[in-house]
């Protein structure tokens, strides 16, 4: 965690949903083909994620990243193969003990609800039927928020929180149902670099606490810097492994359909676009409006 930008999190003694940890993998896909109705988005997909792993799924838009998340939560149509999550086969109903963190862009931030209520809704399906939450439920949700560094912000509106704090609140909601597996849809999309770092540090902390975390992202450099395992997806898996082994120009071309440069800076892998001629490449023209005379 960046000590100057975000409060620390402490999941040490918190009751997470890890008591049922078993020998089965957290996620097991076997020769899967899936999509929506007759439209096929994923095919020939086999993937195993062991319990306690932190895995990033990367790929271009339309590559099937979101479909993969939906498939794991019974939100896409399984055409062929087998899908198991936390040891149970997934067909019509989403598996229990799975927490989902949406893209911030898809959240109605002006919704009339405070942060504590956001977290409490995370287990609405199991909560008793009456329209209010019990004192014990509020206490547990409040403790979770405190552990995630949102001390004193329980009664704030979502719109009053920074992007990083909002992500922490949604992670708290995902954890509140005692999840063993967290699925995050583009958690670093549309956020500033500080918030991105904050989010990735929170996920690393959850990983250290023993949770299984699977996230989708476009951010190759964040994956390279922070995640121990990356899966490249383009309708099928094009590569799977440690970032420094997977993020190669050949794999990225097979995944994204275009050339990318991969730089190695000590132990770090940095992916940069191979700039086309006319957009900052060798053929760029001087721009008289810029002081340095270069094309923008």
């Amino acid at each position: 965690m960046s000590a100057t930008t975000a409060p620390p999190i402490d999941l040490g003694s918190l009751e997470l949903g890890l008591e049922s940890a078993a020998s089965t993998p957290a996620i097991a896909l076997e020769d899967v083909a899936a999509g929506y109705g007759r439209r096929r988005v994923l095919s020939g997909l086999s993937l195993t994620v062991e319990r306690g792993e932190l895995v990033g799924i990367v790929g271009p838009s339309g590559s099937g990243k979101s479909t993969l998340l939906r498939l794991l939560t019974a939100g896409a149509d399984l055409h062929r193969g087998r899908v198991e999550v936390l040891g149970a086969s997934v067909r019509r109903r989403p598996p229990a003990r799975v927490g989902y963190v949406p893209q911030l862009d898809n959240v109605e931030r002006e919704f009339p609800i405070d942060v504590l209520e956001v977290v409490l809704l995370g287990d609405a399906a199991s909560s008793r039927r009456l329209p209010w939450f019990t004192r014990a439920e509020r206490a547990r949700a409040g403790e979770l928020l405190d552990r995630l560094g949102l001390v004193g912000l329980h009664r704030r509106r979502l719109a009053d929180l920074s992007g990083g704090q909002q992500q922490r609140a949604f992670v708290a909601r995902a954890l509140y149902r005692r999840s063993e597996l967290l699925l995050l849809d583009e958690p670093t999309s549309g956020v500033d670099p500080t918030t991105r770092l904050d989010v990735l540090e929170v996920l690393a902390e959850l990983h250290r606490a023993g949770l299984t975390v699977l996230l989708t992202t476009h951010d190759l450099n964040a994956v390279a810097a922070h995640l121990p395992r990356v899966v490249c997806l383009h309708g099928r898996i094009t590569a799977d492994g440690r970032p420094e082994r997977v993020l190669t120009p050949e794999v990225l071309e097979a995944t994204y359909g275009g050339r990318m440069q991969v730089l190695h800076d000590g132990g770090r892998v940095v992916v940069v676009d191979a700039a086309p001629v006319g957009l900052g490449g060798p053929g760029r023209q001087p721009d008289p409006w810029r002081e340095d005379g270069l094309a923008s």
Partner: peptide, 24 residues
């Protein structure tokens, strides 16, 4: 119905996809 379904109705209204994954 409001008494019995208020929480689930609010969750579905606020964030349908997450509500679905979380068992609503």
């Amino acid at each position: 119905l409001l008494l019995l379904l208020f929480k689930s109705l609010v969750f579905t209204t606020f964030d349908t996809e997450v509500a679905r994954v979380h068992g609503v």
